[in-house]
């Protein structure tokens, strides 16, 4: 439709050449194939993402599936007030934030480091084998990982504790200790997702030419300076984008993983927004309330995305757009 009307305006455009608007029209027309290329994707977003977007408004209702959206009662900000006044709100916020920071500091760099290390391997067979091995855990479900974790960490006969006991003479109760909960969660994430995370960085490194390296060698750069001055900069754009996008989901944590590793002795540090929402939203069927919590997280996410993108641009770094 847009294209058709553009064509009919072609004549007018020709007559009024020179003005600002006209050059815009011209630009639109010159890029008509680009718009055509973009159209199917745009339709997808409108149809499957924006058409259902009214669901966000459930947060301001007492949504009842049987009555439907139009018949359900509107309650304004009641759910948000309930959420913020929840006696556990600050504990949940604190746990969520700490885990999110740990994730950012310890997990986020891991795939980058491994990609850099893999990039230095020149025996192709070795490189490919390792690459395949490290990405296997990505395919295991959290249920299986939790059960394997138990097998390895339990104080009664677990392999890890056997080693710890051999060296220190004592066992560590990893599974029930609140102090070990966060390291354990982050450790699991690193184990499961690092290999998978390298895939995208290796793709980015595939774009670095041998000539760049050779030029660096000519300049007398050693191994580490080459890594620092050639390899890492090649990854910069990808790193920045992944970082900014990760911030958008900053408050999201794997519900299933945390739920499976939580017990009576470590719950104090284990409860996060996502586990809370699961119980309230899914098991108690409080649609509106869980939508409200989701909306709160989304608002935080959008602020973080645009904030960090703005900062990145300020610092002359590649941003999101």
């Amino acid at each position: 439709m847009g294209l058709l009307s553009l064509k009919s305006k072609k004549k007018i455009v020709n007559e009024e050449e020179g003005s600002n608007q006209v050059s815009k029209m011209k630009l639109l027309f010159r890029n008509r194939y680009l718009y055509l290329l973009l159209l199917p994707g745009l339709i997808y977003f409108l149809l499957f993402k924006y058409l259902p977007m009214w669901g966000v408004l459930m947060a301001f209702q007492d949504y009842s599936p049987f009555l439907g959206f139009w018949e359900s009662k509107w309650v304004g900000f009641d759910h948000f007030i309930n959420f913020f006044q929840n006696p556990d709100f600050f504990r949940l916020l604190r746990n969520t934030l700490i885990l999110a920071f740990y994730d950012l500091i310890f997990f986020f760099p891991a795939p980058i480091i491994v990609a850099l290390l893999l990039n230095e391997i020149r025996v192709q067979f070795f490189k490919r084998t390792i690459q395949t091995l490290v990405y296997v855990p990505h395919f295991m479900s959290w249920v299986i990982i939790a059960s394997i974790t138990y097998v390895f960490l339990t104080t009664s006969g677990g392999a890890v504790n056997a080693i710890v006991e051999y060296f220190t003479g004592e066992t560590i109760n990893f599974l029930s200790s609140p102090d070990w909960f966060r390291p354990m969660i982050i450790g699991q994430v690193i184990w499961k997702e690092t290999g998978w995370g390298t895939v995208i960085f290796l793709a980015a490194l595939a774009g670095v030419s041998t000539e760049q390296y050779e030029a660096a060698i000519m300049d007398g750069a050693g191994r580490f300076r080459r890594m620092w001055h050639v390899t890492l900069p090649a990854l910069r754009g990808t790193i920045m984008i992944l970082l900014i996008l990760r911030l958008g989901n900053f408050l999201d944590q794997g519900f299933q993983q945390i739920y499976l590793m939580t017990n009576s002795l470590n719950r104090e540090v284990a409860d996060v927004f996502d586990t809370y929402v699961y119980f309230v939203g899914i098991t108690q069927g409080a649609f509106s309330y869980s939508t409200a919590v989701g909306l709160f997280k989304a608002v935080v996410g959008i602020i973080l995305i645009y904030g960090s993108d703005y900062l990145a641009k300020k610092m002359k770094q590649p941003g999101l757009f």
């Binding site: 059960s147 138990y150 339990t154 104080t155 599974l175």
Partner: peptide
């Protein structure tokens, strides 16, 4: 009762 009951995997 087993010492690790608080963390024991119910599957086991």
């Amino acid at each position: 009762v087993n010492e690790d009951f608080a963390v024991m995997d119910p599957a086991k």
